[in-house]
Simulated scan of single mutants.
Amino acid sequence: MDDLAGFLRLRRSRIDPASVGIPTDRHRRVEGLRREEIAHLSGVSVDYYVRLEQGRATQPSEQVLDALARVLDLDETERDHLCRLAGQRRRTTKAVSGRIRPELLRMLDLVADAAALIMNHRMDVLAGNHLAELLYGRPLQGMNTARHIFLEETDLYAGWEQCTLDVVGHLRLAAGKYPDDPRLASLIGELAMGSERFRRLWARADVRARAHGPKTYQHPLVGLLELHQENFSLPSESGMELLVLSATPGSPSADGLRLLASYTANERFGTEQS
Score class of each variant (00 low, 15 high):
Ala205Met: 14
Ser13Glu: 01
Leu165Asp: 15
Met1His: 14
Thr58Ala: 03
Ser13Gly: 00
Glu76Gly: 07
Gly43Cys: 00
Glu53Gln: 07
Ser186Phe: 07
Asp255Cys: 11
Ala146Asp: 09
Asp181Thr: 05
Val111Thr: 03
Arg101Ala: 15
Leu117Arg: 01
Ser236Asn: 08
His212Ser: 15
Leu245Gly: 00
Arg172Cys: 10
Asp255Gly: 14
Ser274Val: 12
Glu31Pro: 12
Met107Leu: 15
Val50Trp: 15
Asp206Met: 04
Pro235Val: 14
Pro214Cys: 00
Leu171Pro: 01
His212Glu: 07
His219Met: 06
Ile188Tyr: 08
Pro17Trp: 01
Arg14Lys: 12
Arg79Asn: 14
Arg122Pro: 08
Arg138His: 10
Tyr217Val: 08
Gly194Ala: 03
Tyr263Pro: 08
Phe198Asp: 06
Val44Leu: 11
Thr154Lys: 13
Cys163Lys: 02
Phe7His: 00
Asp73Asn: 11
Ala146Met: 15
Arg122Asn: 09
Tyr178Gly: 08
Glu31Met: 13
Gly128Thr: 11
Glu196Lys: 10
Leu126Val: 06
Leu201Trp: 00
Thr264Asp: 10
Arg29Cys: 04
Ser238Leu: 05
Gly43Trp: 06
Gly169Glu: 04
Arg101Asp: 02
Arg204Tyr: 09
Leu225Asn: 10
Asp206Val: 09
Leu117Ile: 08
Phe198Arg: 10
Asp25Phe: 03
Asp75Pro: 04
Ser42Ala: 10
Asp3Ile: 09
Leu108Pro: 13
Arg89Leu: 07
Pro23His: 02
Gln54Val: 11
Ser42Trp: 03
Val44Cys: 13
Arg200Ala: 15
Gln59Ser: 08
Arg51Val: 06
Ser45Pro: 11
Arg268Thr: 14
Leu85Cys: 03
Thr164Met: 11
Pro249His: 06
Leu140His: 05
Asp47Lys: 09
Val50Cys: 11
Ser45Asn: 14
Leu72Phe: 12
Asp113Gln: 00
Asn231Pro: 00
Gly189Lys: 00
Arg101Ser: 06
Arg204Ala: 09
Glu152Phe: 10
Ser97Cys: 03
Met119Ala: 11
Leu140Gly: 02
Ala114Tyr: 07
Pro249Met: 05
Glu78Cys: 09
Leu104Trp: 15
Tyr217Leu: 10
Met193Gln: 14
Val30Glu: 04
Leu41Gly: 07
Arg122Phe: 08
Gly128Arg: 13
Met123Asp: 13
Cys163Trp: 05
